[in-house]
Design a protein around this nucleic acid. Structure first.
Lengths: 305, 305
DNA sequence: CGACGTTACGAATCGCGTAAGAATA
DNA sequence: TATTCTTACGCGATTCGTAACGTCG
C-alpha cells in the first residue's frame, strides 16, 4: 500500500470509476494505474471495486469503508504539505473564502485590503454562494474558511468563531409614514416588505419574529442581497428589511434606517473552518484581520460597548 | 512523500530519535533510513528534526505539527488493513481489552467464553489496569476497547456505550450488628469501612454519598479488588463496601450483602473505544456479547425490569 | 574508541511507457 | 467499432545493501 495507490482510489471515485480518466489525472498512462489497482487489491486480499467484467461500476462495501480512511489520509497529507510551506515562510498560496454577498460587500473589503498588503503573494478566491452551500464548500474542500450567519448548526467537524453580532433595520424613503412614531411588528406587517431570500442573512430571524407575534408579513420581494432590496425600496415598492451593516449612511442618505433590534432577534455572523484542516499562518492572519474589523464595526455601532 | 517515510517519522520518535534503531524496526539498514529522511526533509523544504551536528535531538515545531498528521495517517492505514482483513473473513487477529479486576472477574468470563467459541482463531489480551489508565491505553493504541466505570469524562475522541447500571452493597459477616434494622449512612460511618482504592469501581460515588451527608467514613482499608476486601471482612476488620456484582451468593454465603442502592448513587459501567478506530467484526461481536451479558446480569438482579 | 550518522557505489526492485490483446457496450 | 481494461516486455528511476568515511561524546 502506498500513497499513490490511495490517491488512485480517490481519483477513481472522482472520475466515476473510470481508470482512463483517473490515469490522466495522475499523469500516467492507463495501464499503469490498472496494475497499481490490481496490486493494491491483491495486497488487501479482497476487491475494492464492484466490476461487471472488466469495467468498474462502484465501490464494494469494503471500498466504501476504505474511502473514508483515504479521505482522512488525503487531508493529512495536504496538511503536512501546507505546514511545510508555512514553516518555510512560503508567502505564496491561495486563500479560498466562501461567503455571501452581504459579508463580501460590507465586512470583507477592509480585511482583504489589509491582507493583500501583508501577503501580496497570496491569491484570494472569493466563492460567493448561498448560505446553505457555504458549509458544503468547506466539506468539499473548495473553501478554506466560510463566513456566514445562518445554517451553521451543530457540526463537530467544524471550528466556529463568533465574529460579530448585528441586527436588522427597516429602510424606507424619507417621507414614508413609518418614519413617524414607534416602529412595531404590527405596523411592519401592514406594509409590503422587501427582504432577503429564505436562508440568507438572518431571514430566519425575521420570520421567527413575525411568527412569534402571530403576524403574517407580506413579503413581496425577496433577493439575495441588500443592494437589490434598496433599489426597489427607492422605487417605492415597500419597506426593506436588511442588515444594519448594509445601510451606508453616506450613499443611502436618501433612505431612512429604522432600528429593529428590539423587534427582531440579533444575528451572529461566524467564521467557520474544518477542524481537520491545517490553517497556514496567512489564513490565521486573515481571520484575525476579520475579527478585528468586526470588532471595529461593532464598536462603531454600539459606541464603545 | 510516501508512507514509509511517514512511518519512519513515527519510529524515530518511538526510538528517541535514533536512526539506527528506527532502521532496525523498519527492517532496513541504517543508511537507507538516513537517506529517506534527507529526501523527505528536502521535499518538505525545512527540517523536521532538531539536530546537534549529525545527531537527532527531537522535533522542530514543524515536526511536532507533522507528527499529529502522521499519527492520523498511521491510524487510517491500520484501519484500512483491518477492514480488508475483516472483509476477507479473516478469523485471526487479536482483541486487546483494557479493564479492571472487577469487570475482568465478574462481567467478562461469559462473553469471553462465547467469543472464544465463535472466534477460536482470535487471541485475547486482557490488559488489567487501574481505571485512570484505561483511557490512556486506548489513546496509546495498546487496547482496542476499555470497560470501566469511573474516569470516563468528556472526550470527543471516544465512543461510549453504556453497558450496565449497578449499585454498591455492604458485606458483613452473618452475625454483624448491621444485619439488624435498616442500613443508613450514619450507621455505616460509625463502622470501620473496607472498600476500593480511590479511582476504582465507583469509589467516587461512595465518597460523594458520605460527603453529601456530611459524614466522614472511616476507611481503614482500600484495595483494588473486591476479593481482597472480602478476605479482610471475613477476618472481622469491618464492613466491606463493594459492587453488587462482586458478591457471589454461592461462594460468599458466609457473608451478608446489604443493598446500598438508596444510599449510594448507582454507577454505570461503559464500553469505550476510539472513534477513529475501525472495529473488526469480531470486535463488534465481543461488544455485543458483552452488552447481552450485561443485560442478563441486570435482569437477574432487577427481576425483569 | 564506540556509537551514530553520512556518503559512495553497485545491485535489485519497482513502477512506468509502449504496444498489443481481450472484453464490453 | 469505440471504449475500456488487461497483459507482456523493456527501460528508467527509485531504493536498497555494502562498505568506507565523518563526527560527536
Amino acid at each position: 500500500m502506498n500513497l499513490n495507490q490511495l490517491e488512485l482510489l480517490r481519483l477513481l471515485r472522482e472520475t466515476d470509476y473510470n481508470l482512463s480518466k483517473a490515469a490522466e489525472k495522475m499523469h500516467v498512462v492507463q495501464s499503469a494505474v490498472s496494475r497499481q489497482l490490481q496490486l493494491l487489491e491483491a495486497e488487501l486480499g479482497s476487491p475494492v471495486f464492484e466490476r461487471h467484467g472488466k469495467r468498474l461500476l462502484g465501490l464494494t462495501p469494503l471500498g466504501e469503508h476504505i474511502m473514508r480512511e483515504v479521505e482522512q489520509i488525503h487531508q493529512a497529507k495536504k496538511n503536512i504539505q501546507s505546514m511545510a510551506d508555512d514553516f518555510r515562510a512560503n508567502r505564496n498560496g491561495t486563500l479560498h473564502i466562501a461567503t455571501t454577498h452581504t459579508q463580501a460587500k460590507y465586512l470583507l473589503p477592509v480585511p482583504v485590503q489589509k491582507f493583500r498588503r501583508q501577503y501580496p503573494g497570496v491569491k484570494i478566491y472569493m466563492l460567493q454562494s448561498s448560505p446553505d452551500n457555504l458549509i458544503d464548500l468547506l466539506h468539499q474542500h473548495r473553501a478554506d474558511i466560510a463566513i456566514c450567519t445562518e445554517k451553521l448548526a451543530e457540526d463537530d467537524r467544524l471550528i466556529l468563531k463568533p465574529c460579530y453580532r448585528w441586527h436588522h433595520v427597516a429602510v424606507v424613503p424619507q417621507d414614508h409614514p413609518l418614519t413617524g412614531g414607534d416602529v412595531t411588528l404590527q405596523r411592519l406587517a401592514a406594509e409590503p416588505i422587501l427582504t432577503y431570500s429564505p436562508g440568507f442573512t438572518g431571514r430566519s430571524a425575521i420570520e421567527k419574529a413575525f411568527h412569534d407575534a402571530e403576524l403574517q408579513p407580506d413579503i413581496i420581494l425577496a433577493a439575495a442581497d441588500s443592494d437589490v432590496i434598496k433599489t426597489y425600496v427607492r422605487l417605492g415598492l415597500g419597506v426593506g428589511i436588511i442588515a444594519e451593516t448594509s445601510y451606508e449612511p453616506g450613499k443611502d442618505s436618501d433612505l431612512v434606517a429604522l432600528d429593529l433590534s428590539r423587534l427582531i432577534a440579533t444575528s451572529v455572523t461566524k467564521i467557520a473552518y474544518l477542524k481537520q484542516l491545517y490553517l497556514p499562518s496567512y489564513c490565521r492572519y486573515f481571520i484575525d484581520a476579520l475579527l478585528e474589523q468586526a470588532q471595529l464595526k461593532h464598536l462603531g455601532h454600539c459606541s464603545g460597548q
